[in-house]
Structures are given as C-alpha cells and as structure tokens.
Nucleic acid binder design. Sequence first.
DNA 1: CGCGTTTTTGAATTTAATCAAAGAATGTGG
DNA 2: CCACATTCTTTGATTAAATTCAAAAACGCG
Lengths: 239, 239
Amino acid sequence: MIEAHLRRLRARHSISDAEEAAIRAAIGEIRDFPARGTLVEAGEEMSHSMLLLKGLICRYKDLSDGQRQITQVHVPGDFPDLHSFTLKKLDHSIMTLTPTRIAFVPHANLNVITERYPHLTRVYWFSTNLDAAIHREWELSLGRRTALGRCAHLLAEFRFRLEVVGLATKNGYDLPISQIDLSECLGLTPVHVNRSLRRLREDGIVTFRTGRVVIHDLARLEEAGEFDPAYLYPVAVPI
Amino acid sequence: MIEAHLRRLRARHSISDAEEAAIRAAIGEIRDFPARGTLVEAGEEMSHSMLLLKGLICRYKDLSDGQRQITQVHVPGDFPDLHSFTLKKLDHSIMTLTPTRIAFVPHANLNVITERYPHLTRVYWFSTNLDAAIHREWELSLGRRTALGRCAHLLAEFRFRLEVVGLATKNGYDLPISQIDLSECLGLTPVHVNRSLRRLREDGIVTFRTGRVVIHDLARLEEAGEFDPAYLYPVAVPI
DNA sequence: CGCGTTTTTGAATTTAATCAAAGAATGTGG
DNA sequence: CCACATTCTTTGATTAAATTCAAAAACGCG
C-alpha cells in the first residue's frame, strides 16, 4: 500500500525496520478521490499530511484574474503536503489531476516521529528539501527556458520521477492529464503548449497523446530540455 | 551577532533559552566576504550550513548558454543553505550580492540539534519550508505575472522580509544590487526591467535608484504586484 | 580623472498570447 | 449502445509583450 513511498525513501536513504514500522503506525485513514477535485484550499488549517498512494495531484496558486500556476505535480509515493506539518496553513491549494488514493497522516503522529526518530525526521526533512529543489528547477524553466525547452524538461522530469516508483520506462509512461494542465505547469497558454508538443512530435523526440507519453528519443528529449537529474537527488545520501 | 536570526525565528515561534544556547553553541567560524563572490558551486559537497549575518546573497542556476535564474535572495537573519544539512550536495550555486558576514554552522552541530532538540528541529524544518513557499510564489511570478507585476511583487517581498529583521520601513529600504541582478530574479532582460521600473516610478509607486528603494505608495505597490504576505508566514505558529 | 559597468532610450525583431473556429475525444443520459 | 453535450486538441490569423540590437548618458571605483 505504501510500497511506492518506501521505495522512494529507500532510493535515497536506508530505512530501518523500526522506522518502517513507525511510518506504518503513523498512517491513518485511506480514502479515494475523483479526478479534478480540490483536496485543500490555500489558507486552510491542516492537522494532517497526505501521502499519495495512487494517481496524480498538483499544488497551485491563482492570480485574481483567474490565471493559474501549478507549482508542483506529485506522483505516487510522494508526500505532497508534508510541509503542512510545520507550516500548518498552506500557501497554496491542492487538487487531484486524476482519480487518486490518499493515506492521511495526522500531524500528531508525525510529531511522535520527530520526538523519537531523529534519523527518520531528517529523512522527511530531506523529502521537503527535495520538493524545494524541484521548485527551483521549475523557476529556472519558467524564468529562462523557451517554450520548447520547458515542455521537454517537464516531460523528462516526470519520466524520471515516475521511473523511481516503477511507473515509467525509457520508452514512455502514462500521463492522463490535459494540455491545459501542462500549460498551467509551464507558464504558457494551452495553444502554445500544443504547438510546442507538435514540434517535439514532428522532430521525432516525444509524442504526448491521449494520456500517454511515448518517448522516441530520450537522449534528445533530455537534451532539448537541458534536463540533468542531479536536482532530483537520485543517489543515496547518508544523513 | 545572530540577533537578526533570533529575531526572525522568534517572529514565528517561541525559542527557549536552552534552544537559543544550542543555536549559539552550534555556530563555528564567522567570516566576511566581498560582493559578487561565489560561496558555493552547484554540486559541491557541503559539511556546514551558512547563517547570513550581514549583507545580501542569492542562490542561482544557469543554463548552458549562460542565462541565469536567481531562485532566491537572502536577507540578514536567513539560513540560506540550511537545506544542505539534508541534501549535502546543492542543486544550485550561491553567491554574494553585496559584502557579507557569514557564520558557519557545521552539519555535525546541526545533527546534535536534531538528536536533542526536537522542537528546534521542527522550527528549522519550518524555516526550509518557508524557503519553499517563497520559491512557489516566485514560480507564480515567473509563470503568470506581467513584467510590471513581477517587479512590484519582488520589491514588496523584499520590503516585507527586510522589515521583519528591522532593515526596512513602510517608506523604503537599502537594496544595493543592480538592475541586472533584478532581471535575473525576474526572468526578464535588464532592458525590460529598466522600462518596468521607469513605469513604476512615473506612476508614483516606487523609485529604485542607487541602491535604495523609495516607496511612494506602498498600498499601490502591493496591489500592482498582487502581494499578499501570507506566504511569508508572518504570524506565529506553534509547532 | 579615466575606465568599466550600469542605466537609459530608441528601433527592429521574435516569441508567445489572443482571438476565432473547426475537428476529435470523452462522458452522459436516454 | 447511440446521440448529444462538453471538453480538449488543433490550426490559422492577428496582436501584444518581451527580447534583441545598438548606442548614448550616468555612475562608481581605483
């Protein structure tokens, strides 16, 4: 059930049996949610964090004219609002992109972890710092990459993150979201995303269609987006 | 010496005498650095974190063609690379923008804090989560705000963060950096930043000149940037 | 004072947004 | 299972925003 999460943690750190037991003990209710539903509104007071078991969700912020910026997309195994444990009120909203299954982890249980399991606390701290590293890479995309580069980079990032939890190969992965969703990640209009994707397709690099990403040439995809996975910390780091 | 840092922490959380002592005990060497110098190169292995006592520094990432995106600017009292405690290798570089004074905090000492001071650990975890919240707001700026809105928002954010540590008033603050630096924060060219700043000045909102920001109309500045300080967590949150 | 950097401005170009509308896919209720 | 409605994708034409190129003016430092 939380296998994807453990796999994600163990990709970077060693987790002892006692720590795994502590994680399992911290988990409360498990619930399913339909696609495109609000999970948390910005400013809401949180008393639990959510562990994503299945599906895709995103965090986003809106401007007053309705323009939306998705600040991060989460894949199974992620702990999308672990930061609410210390922030309490979130500065952003969270919604499902696809049907999802979520495990709720009460903050009281996370507090027990910080009191009794310093190493596991550091591992979870690392996890929120990894989220911040992804934010920084997106800042680079939004601020400096071209439309084509942004699209390529995002598709490469998703592939890499999904592969860590066994949901992608070198050749492709399921991504059942719309080009509108992509445009809200990329700071572009849906029309321009569509044109950029056409270009990537016509150049024989990648095809995104009907909820699936088919990669024709991974090397060229990563090159087009200047994707370097170092910011995703793929290597184990003892802490 | 670390008064700005304590002030910043205590703006949000209560710090006990024992915790303050633990912070002071964790501090190692203190050094001064000139303006525009590299403090850390991306990918470098870190064994300490840096506490900014005086001056301004930034974190940034470059593309291969030399384009630079500054992902965050740090003000006195900030712990700019506290995240290196868990990440070890940084995904970005760090440089000084102005002459600075920095206190080095060995990771070994931070480790002691996580083993012995769970509450202080949560406070520092909060601190890195606050950094991530700033990243998200910058993603919104870079992805969706207009050039004018980005400039206004950034100047409003700097004012707010500097006021927390007593370095800004409602009327202005020192900001001894160039328009080129601003353009690297904002994902714009220096030329366009210059034009946006002229517009803000001619509209009687704010003047940025010779290292100083003079605010003519704070309400209109924050309105122009749709600045809402909620993401900076100005209110105390018990954790 | 003189040199290098930064700021400022103008003109031309490029990129991406906007507007508009036709097709394709998806989901729903009958 | 089909018909219809809705949403999403795709394309073309036009407009707007920001970049690029160029050069002069101002500033800051040694």
